[in-house]
Computed example of a mutant assay.
Amino acid sequence: MTVEWAQVDTARRRTVSYMTERPPRRRLSREARQAQLVAVAERLFAERGFEGTSIEDIAREAGVSRTIVYAHYATKDDIFVACVRQARAELEDRVREPEILIEAGADARTVITRAGEVFFGILERDPHRWMVLFNPSTALSPELNARLTELREQTITRIAGMVRNLGSFDDERSLAFAYAISGVGEQLGRWWLTRPDIPRSTVVAYYRDFITPGLDLR
């Protein structure tokens, strides 16, 4: 065997040895893969917007093929809804905190302060998740808009229930106030994103001071 072929043979054996010794790539469970894809998609949707993100982008960032993405989410709409569902699930879970205060007899100022801490705390900790929830694109299809509206109204209904219990308002006023409170939070959150030097406590105080007077009406 010549020196040249000896070198080739040695390199080949090293390659075979490496391939044999390298541990196989662990296959993720369905739940783990979906969690990975949603995490990647959430970041891309927040950074690039809905229209600026494609299934190809999500697959590339996740290090998988498009086939893998499509095996879990049939369309980009579906994975966007999954991102929104996850974000709203966290918000819905945290909404329980001001509800508990109401049940304990706390006044409107205390409840709204806690609600603001919850709402703006999510924005501060995870702006990508917040932006997926509250920075919708104008490029969404009517079908996707309808799905997102249904999710949003579930949260609005929770807020309306708190308003009703705080002020003994009728259903119509409670629902109207719930939409107003939600809108104030969203717009104040967008304002805060452009002024990150302002502490969260200040933003919460602005939120509380604007909303509380309306809930104190009798």
Rank of each mutant, 00 (worst) to 15 (best):
V40G: 00
M1Y: 10
P142S: 03
T113K: 14
A115K: 14
A205Q: 14
A32W: 01
T10C: 08
A139Q: 15
F45L: 00
R96K: 13
G49H: 04
R48L: 05
A59Y: 11
L37Y: 01
I198F: 09
Y73W: 05
K76Y: 08
L175S: 13
T75H: 13
A146I: 00
A82C: 01
D93Q: 14
A11V: 10
R147S: 05
E61G: 00
R96V: 09
G49R: 00
I198A: 13
D77R: 13
V8Q: 15
T157H: 07
P199K: 06
V95P: 07
G185R: 09
A87P: 10
E31A: 15
E186V: 12
G52T: 02
G189A: 02
A89F: 01
L91E: 11
E4P: 09
Q7E: 14
A115D: 11
G63E: 07
P199C: 04
V38Y: 05
A74M: 04
L101I: 03
I211M: 03
G167H: 06
T212M: 08
E51I: 06
V64P: 07
S174M: 05
P199D: 12
A176E: 10
G116I: 08
D93K: 15
R190F: 03
A74N: 04
V40S: 06
E61Q: 05
R43G: 03
V84S: 07
A46V: 01
R173M: 09
I211S: 02
S29Y: 00
V95C: 07
I58G: 09
I79N: 11
D171R: 01
Q187G: 15
L217M: 10
R164E: 01
R66A: 08
P213W: 05
R27Q: 12
V38L: 08
D216Y: 02
